[in-house]
């Protein structure tokens, strides 16, 4: 429960963080809220030689409106995201998802950038971003680029981020009043989802149904073709191959995905 030795450097700006990343290469890891990275270091599943702390960079925090999108800084804490008026009004699913993460202590430390970069397929915010059809802004040595959520999550704890890159902001469409639904199936209130479903205006995203957050494309298609929520939900697990653990085997997860998708579709608010 004590991590291996490491150096700690507090970055002074996003640019400084990028320089440090370039200097230290694979040896370094960015530190945001530390609520995924530090547990892994304590269990010695991660042993970075250098931590570059971006968690205190004010430039990377906060929510702004930019034309049709909300731009959310990478180091915005889950609790701030959940409480932000702009988010609650214009991307309520995201605020709600942030409020479902762990418990208050975790929500006051963990950041949206950290959660997305960590890319746990069972997590709330990656699923929410996929459902919302959002994107992420990435800064690297060669400048910045924007990657759509659907392309960002590439594998089990794997993203489009290069080792020398930094996720600087998250973009989601501004859509006040659009109906949305959210279902998180847990053992205890502060656990990760055994299966999660987020629905926004015909887009359906699933958590913990594969190596990445997934789109339930067959169900989306059925819905688009006029199927009832119940009929569409029958297809929610089509094409998925979820993992197995103590809480659920493949069949149970697939069953849960169908039930929860139906409930998310039937109980939409907005």
């Amino acid at each position: 429960m004590i991590p291996a030795p490491f150096e700690y450097i507090a970055a002074e700006s996003p640019g400084h963080a990028l320089e440090l990343l370039a200097d230290y290469g694979d040896e370094a890891k960015l530190l945001a809220g530390g609520h995924s990275l530090l547990p892994m270091m304590k269990l010695r599943l991660a042993t970075p030689a250098v931590l570059i702390d971006i968690g205190r960079l004010e430039q990377l925090a906060g929510v702004q409106a930019d034309d049709g999108e909300l731009v959310i800084g990478a180091t915005t804490r889950h609790a701030d995201l959940a409480a932000a008026e702009l988010v609650r009004a214009e991307a309520p699913l995201l605020a709600y998802a942030a409020a479902q993460v762990g418990d208050p202590q975790i929500r006051h430390r963990g950041t949206i950038g950290g959660s997305l970069s960590h890319a746990d397929p069972a997590a709330d915010l990656p699923m929410a971003l996929v459902a919302l059809g959002g994107s992420v802004e990435i800064q690297g040595p060669g400048g910045s680029r924007v990657v759509a959520a659907d392309d960002f999550f590439q594998g089990f704890f794997e993203t489009a981020l290069g080792p020398d890159e930094l996720l600087s902001a998250v973009r989601v469409p501004r859509r006040p009043g659009v109906p949305w639904g959210y279902q998180k199936f847990v053992r205890r209130s502060n656990d990760w989802a055994i299966v999660g479903v987020a629905v926004v205006d015909g887009r359906i995203a699933l958590a913990n149904m594969g190596a990445t957050p997934l789109r339930a494309t067959a169900a989306e298609r059925a819905l688009a073709e006029g199927a009832s929520p119940a009929a569409a939900a029958e297809h929610a697990a089509d094409g998925t191959s979820p993992g197995e653990d103590m809480h659920a085997d493949r069949e149970y997860r697939r069953h849960l995905a169908r039930v929860l998708t139906r409930r998310a579709l039937e109980h939409q608010t907005g």
Binding site: L43, R187, R188, S189, N190, D191, W192, M246
Partner: peptide, 16 residues
């Protein structure tokens, strides 16, 4: 053992 942390060993809390 598969239940070697409180993430896996689900001690009960007030919400349950």
């Amino acid at each position: 053992p598969l239940t070697t942390s409180f993430a896996d060993y689900p001690i009960i809390s007030a919400t349950e």
